[in-house]
Design a protein around this nucleic acid. Structure first.
Lengths: 210, 210
DNA sequence: TTCTCTCTGTGATTCAATTCACAGGCACTG
DNA sequence: CAGTGCCTGTGAATTGAATCACAGAGAGAA
């Protein structure tokens, strides 16, 4: 695998994949970098740079949709499905369980965790809810290396060491708290309060910058 | 207001604000840039650069917590509250309504929109649901300049022109589709599928990069 | 086949963001 | 009051990402 793809490029692969997925169900056999770019909201040369890292070559008609899709999937979707667990079955957690169920077949939500005894044992959007105490045991059993955190900010602080011990490799963190994990664990922060505040700031500012 | 604050700096102000908010309810009067930085997951010099744009000066004991908090609030929280509307009352939309209700008093969720007749008229987490047809009229009436989009990807495409006509200034877009809006409208994309795929990619990659 | 046109692939360049590194200042000490 | 040590504020240097711009290649036309 290519050693030097930037995080941003990987993110855009995901954008392209979604688009190509839709295209692959149409007649269209080829797509130009300029097209792909416009429809993803990036520039053409940026799209070409991103595609450079894949092993597909474009021709004078552009890129072959199927080939491109296969190449991106080869990067983003590993051969065997990856197990994902979710910690914190609140409103947001439940919404994400429903959102992700079946969306990406190579990413399977195998377990949810909470401390609320009322939730434990229930099956929520196809995913069983376990007590947080059993986190390590069940992550181990299900071979889950990715977790989604949807708990209140304070609750996250104590979780770091447990995630390390459980052998977690990547975290998708919706909690508004900084997680201090070694750099070998990838942390993807999704801070929706921050995003809304940014939007509000730029809405209030007269002189908009792009 | 300072003309040249980068988008990323604004985002980090939001992080700092959250932290200072918590600190302001403790004994601690001062905070060092290195502390603030470590607890927000950034470097000390970056934190100092971000604070430079505010009008507060730090001393040998660091920055005064209250003063700093006031300065950041002055930037992020305008004098009069801003009205926010949400379009798409699915699982995710409902979760966000509940998430944001009362969290930031200067950002008030004043209306939700959907096409499902069953939802229209209902009050969800304190927010009334209107038919999407009435979007422009109600945004006008409520003077909402910020919208949160939580609809399925395809549904977003047609929405662009309507948002422009309605005088929207900023969009928080959870839909996995590129919104083509003029640069005078700030678009903040939150693409959770992409985030999960990025996490999965880096989880699967042996040679982790930071 | 040859000519032309358009598109890709990619060095070189520009632009933005982060980090370095240190001068200057405040707080505490004796 | 001088001395010491740590902290901020910020030019300068560095790193990283996006853009430019053009050589080279394939497609279609005649």
């Amino acid at each position: 695998m290519h050693p030097d793809v930037s995080q941003k490029t990987v993110g855009r692969w995901s954008l392209y994949r979604r688009l190509l997925d839709a295209l692959s169900r149409t007649e269209q056999r080829y797509i130009l970098s300029s097209d792909l770019a416009r429809r993803s909201g990036v520039t053409a040369s940026q799209a070409r740079r991103d595609l450079m890292h894949l092993e597909v070559a474009g021709g004078a008609r552009g890129y072959e949709v199927q080939a491109l899709l296969r190449a991106i999937n080869a990067q983003l979707a590993p051969a065997e499905p990856q197990a994902v667990a979710l910690i914190g079955v609140g409103n947001l957690g439940r919404a994400l369980l429903s959102y992700f169920q079946g969306r990406r077949p190579t990413l399977q939500l195998v377990a949810a965790f909470d401390i609320d005894p009322h939730k434990i044992g229930r099956v929520i959007h196809g995913c069983r809810c376990y007590p947080l105490d059993e986190l390590e045991a069940i992550l181990e059993r299900e071979a889950a290396r990715i977790v989604i955190l949807t708990l209140p900010g304070e609750a996250v602080a104590t979780l770091g060491p447990r995630l390390i011990k459980a052998g977690i490799r990547a975290v998708l963190n919706f909690a508004p708290s900084h997680l201090d994990l070694p750099p070998s664990i990838h942390v993807e922060d999704v801070d929706i309060t921050m995003s809304l505040e940014k939007a509000a700031f730029f809405a209030a500012t007269q002189e908009q910058r792009s």
